[in-house]
């Protein structure tokens, strides 16, 4: 594989719910080791892009490839073993299972299971609170803790790309800072991250690049600086 081939490549993606089209020819890329944010207001279609990428919703048109492999026809449960992990919006932990069981499930696929105990040591070193809370039911954790477990559960698969849908949703500023630090820490370990967020400044503070989505179309893309200096972003999203 050539070094130029991005990790994730989405081309001209269209998604239709019933007779309501939500995505109109969306293209985006994430390269190995990058942190990329997907910005846009509520209802723009950010979650739909991620859910269509992992085949949770059908792709009406377009092409998604991961590490050069076309994902057409590959079911959701076949993706994590290929190195693509997806943390759903609102964390979606298994609430009546323990923190430890949630983590073990993150490394459930046969490829990851082979070195699951090492992965456990790794994520518990990145997030030490996981050890103290290992026997607590996931549903009884605070929102911030749940987000951390969700991220850790994704990491248990040793992914090359971790997609996180709204990692900061409903969290206090202090916890947001913690999550930001965690994202940077896992990125330094070589994991690429694609995440969605509505707050432009917050998202671009840790992203190398960003995409701005509106009503199912990519409005603009660029480096963090380019985006922050863009006229539309300044007017509409930063109120300057």
């Amino acid at each position: 594989m050539s070094g130029a081939e991005p990790l994730l490549r989405i081309e001209a993606l269209e998604v239709v719910y019933g007779d309501f089209q939500v995505l109109w020819g969306v293209s985006l890329q994430v390269r190995a080791g990058e942190v990329v944010c997907l910005l846009g207001p509520n209802g723009a279609g950010k979650s739909t892009i991620m859910n269509a990428t992992t085949a949770l919703v059908p792709r009406h048109a377009g092409r998604v490839s991961f590490r050069g492999e076309d994902l057409a026809g590959i079911p959701t449960h076949g993706l994590v073993a290929r190195g693509l992990a997806h943390v759903l919006e609102r964390r979606r932990l298994f609430p009546t299972l323990t923190v430890r069981q949630n983590l073990l499930l993150g490394g459930f696929n046969p490829a990851a299971r082979a070195h699951r105990s090492e992965s456990l040591v790794w994520v518990e070193s990145v997030l030490p609170f996981l050890v103290e809370r290992k026997d607590q039911l996931a549903g009884t954790l605070s929102g911030g803790e749940q987000q951390m477990v969700a991220i850790a559960r994704g990491l248990m698969a040793r992914p090359s790309l971790l997609m996180i849908d709204e990692p900061f949703l409903g969290l206090s500023p202090r916890v947001i800072d913690e999550i930001l630090a965690i994202v940077e820490r896992i990125n330094r370990q070589g994991v690429a991250v694609l995440f969605t967020e509505q707050n432009v400044q917050l998202a671009l503070s840790i992203s190398k690049r960003g995409y701005l989505l509106e009503s199912g179309r990519i409005l603009l893309e660029g480096s963090g600086r380019e985006m922050l200096e863009h006229e539309t972003v300044r007017k509409v999203y930063l109120g300057l």
Partner: peptide
């Protein structure tokens, strides 16, 4: 508990 999340775990 959550069939969608389970699928994302490779199940």
């Amino acid at each position: 508990e959550d069939a969608q999340a389970a699928r994302l775990m490779g199940i």
